[in-house]
Amino acid sequence: MHDAVFTWVLRRLAEQGLIKGERIGVDASTMEANAALRAIVRRDGGESYREMLVRMAKESGIETPTAEDLIRLDRKRKGKTLSNAEWVSPTDPDARITKLKDGRTRLAYKPEHALDLDTGAVVAAEMHSADRGDTATLPGTLESAARHLAAVEAAPSAEAPAEMVADKGYHSREVLKTLDDGPWKTRIAEPKRDGFSRWHGDDAARRAVVNNRTRLLSGVAHIAFKLRAEVVERSFALILDRGGMRRAWLRGRENLHKRYLIHVAGYNLGLIMRLLTGSGTPRGFQARVSASLAAIATPNAGLVVILIVVAGDQTAAIAFSIARDPLG
């Protein structure tokens, strides 16, 4: 049902000409989960992190460790790692331990967007596990984007492929080989590598990498990457930061994805509002100030000028007359 609402909003955007489907930018961010990192437990035995520290403190000779002792032990112990294969949150098992964009290590999710770079419309908003890499989540996001574009009759095809623009985190031989000669014409930034590439007889991967590299050298690619950096990052800033979705208040990836789809649908509706009214939000529309000037000629060759100023829900009108010059 939530996906149907999201698709309905996309159809309204298509009616206004806000979906082109020619250049699609893909990127991902992080969202802090509604679960505390200090409450994680081991997957095998259910031992909490604090219980593990108490056990290690007693093994080191501290019979009744205090909170300061546990903090000191945790800070100095060797091999301090938190693996998702060993630890899980009992309140939100779908959340994964990862490093957020601001450098903090928390339980989180990974929202991923596919946007129409020509209009800024989000055509796919997926919610993935935070420990999955970009190359692993890209196929699911592109599949969702193709399905939603097909609903508005703008789906790419092998005969008329759409450009897919992404940063170097999405670059891999398998991804490029899979997308080559398909509905997506890749423009994925290639990371710098030292030495020569060895293909071990994989001619298909070599051809796909070379084709992608050739497309990166064109002026069209520079414009597309500039749009991707601007449009995709703006969507994350407005949806996650300004929109209050940087931290989740629901638990479970499916529940969070439903809420996120409706939130992104509201973002897309803002594009229609901006096209029709010049403002993307009701508050922005209310804050707009407009002025109108009208002039009326009088029978004695004078002039009456009316200035109308509208600011929010307040309207003011000023009228003054200009008399005919008796010497004129």
Rank of each mutant, 00 (worst) to 15 (best):
R106I: 00
G328N: 09
R42T: 15
N268T: 07
Y260D: 00
G278R: 05
R288C: 03
R247F: 12
R215D: 10
G169S: 06
I97G: 03
F6W: 08
T178K: 08
L70E: 10
S218W: 04
S129T: 12
G312F: 12
G266A: 14
G182K: 09
T281E: 04
A162H: 00
V264G: 02
A301R: 15
A108F: 00
S60D: 10
D181M: 06
L107D: 04
D44K: 15
T137L: 03
A85R: 12
E59H: 13
P111R: 02
I62P: 02
V175Y: 01
Y170F: 13
D180G: 01
S290H: 10
L107Y: 06
R43K: 15
A151T: 05
S29K: 02
R193H: 11
D27L: 03
T137N: 02
A145T: 04
G182T: 06
D241E: 15
P156A: 00
K99C: 11
A189M: 10
D116A: 00
I306G: 06
E143A: 14
I239L: 15
K20L: 14
E22A: 12
G284F: 00
L70Y: 01
R213N: 14
L227K: 14
G21P: 01
T7H: 02
S89M: 10
G312Y: 05
